[in-house]
Computed example of a mutant assay.
Amino acid sequence: MINIAFVGFGKSTNRYHLPYLKLRQDKFRVTRVVTPTLGKRPTEQAELEATGTIFTTDIEDIVTDDSLDLVVVVTPSQSHYQVTKQLLQAGKNVLVDKPMAASVEEAEELVKLAAEKNLFLMPFQSRRFDSDFLTVQQVIANGYLGRLTDLEVHMDHYRPLDGQLEGPAIDGSLFGHGVHLIDQVVSMFGAPQAAVYDLRATRVLESHLDDQIEVNLFYPEAFKATIQTTELATIQYPKWQLRGTKGTFIKYTVDEQENDLKTGIMPGSPRFGSDAPQNFGHLVYYNQSGDRIDKYIPSVQGDYGRIYDTVYETLVNGKPKLVSDETMITVMRLLSGGLQTTGPHILKF
């Protein structure tokens, strides 16, 4: 049994963490929660307290608790680095929400500190278990597309009134949305040879905080991965487009877990997070006989809780971490590279 403490008890903790842990009570027990305001979520707090969870406003109660096996940091992005550093210095294993830090230098410091103390450190890259991403991995692994030439992945919304005039870079779209997409691409293909950035503020023109991004990652053998997000999309664009020497795969819709969670449908419910057949990805490819095959690929079932399964396997059974130190640093280097200068620019690896 792994004893967990949470630093933070807001929307993310209650939407993206606790519902999945409820299905894993044979492996995890939430023993402590630190939150700046007690009673802000009275129903959720009372439910946990009934199982023995202790709530407090002082992080020192976690720092001094030797019974804890893992601390999960779900605080505002700007505080991730400092809170994680404090916990590592206190000898705690840490799972920290994305992005893990505001710069590659901060990330390198945290990784080094964890290594020196032989501690577990990993960002909460739950979108490794998005249904659409798992399906893309399957399509690539099955070789339908041949040698890949182009991959394009989007995270688009229509939020025209939510632009900010001021704020730290970590609150921009590159660190907020791009971190997921960059991690997905790097997890499949590793570090690129070069990255080209186009970061813009499109809703509040005077802002220095990006809300529309395009990052092109260049790899060997003429392969390019494009990551793009916008907050001004009124017409749906494909979430994924992949092209190769033998075929093309396109999927329009995103993983359904977040939509279900927002409507109160919880993990474990029938059809939770499942794609409807009309939302399956479209694959067209040529087989070894030269026949043109046109079909739809059933979506692989997503499950954000699987990130906790991997944490358990690492802490209890010594398996490698889902997100390696090398991948953490590569992702943070790519995020930091986008802020090296204003305007379109290139970063070479």
Score class of each variant (00 low, 15 high):
1 M>C: 05
3 N>P: 01
3 N>K: 14
7 V>H: 10
8 G>D: 06
9 F>I: 04
12 S>Q: 10
15 R>A: 09
16 Y>M: 10
17 H>V: 08
18 L>N: 09
18 L>A: 09
20 Y>R: 07
25 Q>V: 04
26 D>L: 05
29 R>S: 00
30 V>H: 07
30 V>P: 01
31 T>D: 06
32 R>K: 14
34 V>P: 04
38 L>Q: 02
42 P>V: 05
46 A>I: 06
46 A>P: 10
46 A>D: 07
49 E>W: 02
53 T>H: 12
58 D>T: 14
63 V>W: 02
64 T>M: 05
66 D>F: 07
68 L>Y: 11
72 V>P: 00
74 V>D: 00
77 S>F: 12
83 V>N: 08
84 T>Q: 10
84 T>A: 12
86 Q>H: 08
87 L>M: 11
88 L>N: 13
91 G>T: 10
91 G>I: 11
101 A>T: 08
102 A>K: 08
103 S>P: 02
104 V>T: 07
105 E>V: 06
109 E>N: 07
109 E>D: 14
110 L>W: 00
114 A>R: 06
116 E>D: 15
117 K>Y: 08
117 K>E: 08
125 Q>T: 05
131 S>T: 05
132 D>G: 03
140 I>F: 04
144 Y>V: 05
145 L>S: 09
156 D>Y: 13
160 P>R: 14
165 L>M: 13
166 E>G: 05
167 G>M: 08
169 A>D: 11
170 I>P: 04
170 I>L: 07
173 S>P: 00
174 L>Q: 06
175 F>W: 13
177 H>E: 03
179 V>Y: 10
182 I>C: 12
183 D>Y: 13
185 V>P: 07
185 V>D: 09
189 F>Y: 15
195 A>V: 06
196 V>H: 12
202 T>V: 14
207 S>A: 11
208 H>T: 11
211 D>A: 06
212 Q>F: 02
213 I>Y: 01
214 E>V: 13
219 Y>K: 06
220 P>C: 02
225 A>K: 03
226 T>N: 10
228 Q>L: 00
231 E>G: 03
232 L>I: 08
237 Y>K: 13
238 P>R: 12
239 K>Q: 13
241 Q>R: 14
243 R>I: 13
243 R>K: 15
244 G>Y: 08
250 I>W: 13
250 I>A: 12
259 N>S: 10
264 G>Y: 14
264 G>R: 06
269 S>V: 04
271 R>M: 10
276 A>G: 01
276 A>I: 05
288 Q>N: 05
288 Q>Y: 02
289 S>W: 00
294 D>A: 08
298 P>I: 06
305 G>P: 03
306 R>Q: 15
308 Y>I: 03
309 D>W: 09
310 T>Q: 14
310 T>E: 15
311 V>Y: 08
312 Y>K: 01
313 E>L: 15
315 L>G: 04
316 V>S: 03
319 K>M: 12
321 K>M: 15
322 L>C: 07
322 L>Y: 12
324 S>R: 11
328 M>I: 06
330 T>S: 04
340 Q>F: 00
345 H>D: 09
347 L>C: 01
